[in-house]
Nucleic acid binder design. Structure first.
Lengths: 290, 290
DNA sequence: GCTCGCTGATACCCGCCGGGTATCAGCGGC
DNA sequence: GCCGCTGATACCCGGCGGGTATCAGCGAGC
């Protein structure tokens, strides 16, 4: 078996789809092709890699060890490929005659670090040859994906919630955390609280945010959206832990109490490790000198 | 122009070849195909990305801004794809029934950190369920490439010579640097030297190592190979700066003198940022606890 | 100034392969 | 037992990736 070590992105796309669905039919539907060509493509990939990727158990499909590997590595490769295409398009738009100026996409967690972001954008706009900044508010934790697949050039990330692994980053700010409570709640009158105080309060379970699509277990409501959470807090149904800067978006019916023992939140500006764009360097310089 | 944002690895390979050669004919030859299909493939890629990648100037080809972007990003994507294939194959070999045990490839700079490497391998072999370690001695600075494209799972890297950007790493050791001189040279008698002492000594120019394929300018000889360098030093033709641990491979005709003001060399163990293999984690744990 | 030679682009043809439809083969469940 | 669901197989077709032959621009040289 001569094993050529070139894998086409199409094959990776197909394999990732099957590995995620664990079902050829659904994967084929998702890919917009029929099932038989998909089966054949996967077999071909297995033959070329000389490796079994899927255990076709009767009644479904499971990943082998090699399949797990290819799922992770393949996703990374697809991200890198998509990033190459996206960034090239944007670079092309920039150097087209009469085209747009340099343009940077900055991913931020929707609603987070409002004030910092404001200061950053103002300071950057004041620079003489500053690139245009497009702010891309993302869902909870997917700034990482945005950076990886080229939808964004830089992101404001919040340790320990976001992982900075694989990116370059600079620390911008450290802040404490607050408990966001219903205004009328007894705990809202306290000057400070500890994590223990707000965990296990009867009738006031902690809200649960999704991390990479899965919710941590617990009794609290599952939160998709900042506004939804704000409303649930205002209604006295839940409590949430947020960085200090969240005070910017609190409602009248909310109360904020500092948490003495919550881990500090460190805001970073992060970017893909190998990026060497001048515009990005300028943005980072501005950010760190705030 | 409907711009599908899927780029095939074949297209990336072709483009990178042209961008590196800046010549369709030579690139085609390197790729083992004829020139016309290559021209067509690049045009097709440009059309699909909606971007001009190459400025076909009379008498040759130049990269546009977008082309530069795609060259960098495309290389990264190709590395990631190759890494996915290689690591999948290796994982497959590991989970084949009766197949090889877990196996890790550790890239090291040939000849560097001999003693540390010895201790690391011994300590790791002493672990009960340790994976097998294959040591892959690399040329001067390409451990980074080895990690990126999946030829290695971990590497010993030496700051400030290697860049740790884009990898996870742990610090292992810090050492000073020494000047490696011909044994008979007057400077060899000194207890310590400074960088100024060995720069610009008449008849004894500093050896020049290639960094990513290019040699820094200077009068000294261009070095490809440790043995070659050792010989040139022994012959009294050059002098080199090395970490302390290089004493391990010095010849009788060599003399080593500490450099008081050379930057310290920090040895790290580094690995691809997203790796989550248990075997690798065990190796890193062993390394950091040395 | 004409030709030569070098560049990349075009024209055209062919064979392979990716995609489709129809169908088969194992097996769990009502 | 049959049905329904899974993925695999068989077969066909059209497009596209690859080849050869050739063209088109332009710089260098006698």
């Amino acid at each position: 078996m001569e094993t050529v070590d070139t894998v086409e992105t199409r094959e990776l796309r197909y394999f990732v789809a099957v590995a995620e669905e664990l079902h050829f039919g659904r994967a084929a539907e998702r890919l917009g092709i029929a099932q038989p060509p998909l089966s054949r493509a996967i077999q071909q990939l297995e033959r070329r890699l000389g490796v079994r990727l899927l255990a076709r158990d009767r009644r479904g499909v499971a990943l082998t060890g090699a399949g797990e590997t290819l799922l992770h590595e393949g996703r990374a490769a697809l991200d890198a490929t998509a990033a190459a295409a996206r960034r090239t398009r944007r670079a092309g738009a920039a150097d087209r005659p009469g085209g747009a100026r340099d343009r940077l996409v900055l991913a931020v967690k929707a609603g987070a670090s409002h004030e910092l972001l404001h200061k950053l954008l103002d300071a950057h706009a004041a620079e003489p040859a500053a690139a245009e900044i497009e702010v891309l508010p993302s869902g909870t934790c997917d700034q990482e994906a945005m950076l990886r697949d080229g939808r964004a050039d830089a992101a404001l990330m919040h340790a320990p919630f976001n992982s900075l692994v694989g990116f370059d980053s600079e620390e911008l700010m450290t802040e404490g955390q607050i408990a966001v409570l219903p205004a009328g709640h007894p705990l809202a009158a306290r000057r400070t609280l500890s994590m223990a105080d707000i965990e296990g309060v009867p009738g006031l379970p902690l809200a649960r945010w999704a991390r990479h699509g899965v919710y941590p277990p617990g009794p609290g409501p599952e939160i998709h959206d900042q506004t939804q959470l704000a409303q649930l807090i205002a209604l006295g149904r839940t409590v949430a832990v947020y960085p200090d800067s969240a005070r910017a978006w609190l409602w009248a019916e909310h109360a904020a109490v500092p948490l003495a023992d919550a881990p500090p939140v460190v805001t970073h500006i992060a970017w893909p490790a190998h990026n060497r764009s001048l515009a990005l360097a300028a943005l980072v310089r501005t950010a760190t000198s705030l």
